[in-house]
Design a protein around this nucleic acid. Structure first.
Lengths: 137, 137
DNA sequence: TTAAATTGTTTACCTAGGTAAATATATAGG
DNA sequence: CCTATATATTTACCTAGGTAAACAATTTAA
């Protein structure tokens, strides 16, 4: 019965990585969930909250909270859509200015976490995870 | 830059699995973190909270909370140690009686989550995760 | 055209897990 | 012995993410 170990190590890994990312983002007053939103907005441009939560596979309420924190910090704006139920979220100039620093810190953190883990193992791991995840969703 | 996808899918996977486990445990009024504690106590016998949190790589405060909920539900007892700072945690008779049902439900859930994911992929995934995790800790 | 159903967001409340600081007990050193 | 340090647990407070239900705007149907 290797199942238990599989779930256990996956959960542990996820927590360790999130903790490290939070540590790396601390100097900028950001947390991992905020970073994931900022990253998506930076690559995909303005999105509605619905689109954001679907893309990140997160329910609407936590997305609302994360966005409200980003608004309060001045990194994101909520623009009412033509359909007045929806709100488009976009990065502020401040966020665009700071983004490269954040990205650099996250990148350093990730490299550090992976530096002793061979490149081909990373590839293989990503492939296995992706296949499994796709089956679950 | 495959790093981002690697972290992202791992995080998603972890969340999906936890959600499924919570769903499977719902009929018994249990949550995933509680189950992890019950499982460890069942396999290793009575442990102090310190030992539990070290074994599960969880900080002391969340462990206290999880245990307090289990105490309230009558599934676990706190026994003062010879060293009066520490508390040994043990399963109650009620928990021992119910355990097989819980284990069966969790097992079914796990099998269901893995049924379309080949056995050798599972092995490979576990190996990669374990290697990486060991390097991080 | 108005009533009913649907959709996007928010509010309220829950578990999970983290840090910092308080508390109580044990252990060492002077 | 008594003070200082170390350790186990708890408390208070934070983010992350989940469900259920409220609310407002939109769409569908009668």
């Amino acid at each position: 019965m290797t199942n238990h170990a599989l779930f256990h190590t996956l959960h542990q890994l996820s927590r360790q990585l999130t903790n490290s990312l939070n540590e790396a983002l601390k100097p900028f007053g950001l947390y991992s969930a905020q970073w994931s939103v900022l990253f998506v907005l930076h690559t995909k441009g303005s999105l509605t909250q619905k689109e954001l939560s679907e893309y990140l596979f997160v329910e609407a309420p936590p997305m609302t909270r994360t966005i409200q924190r980003l608004v309060k910090q001045g990194f994101v704006r909520q623009i009412p859509g033509k359909d007045k139920r929806e709100k488009y979220i976009q990065l502020t100039e401040e966020a665009l200015k700071e983004f490269p620093k954040w990205e650099h810190a996250v990148s350093e953190c990730n490299n550090d976490l992976l530096k002793k883990f061979p490149e081909d193992s990373q590839q293989e791991l990503l492939k296995l995870q992706s296949v499994w995840l796709k089956q679950l969703l």
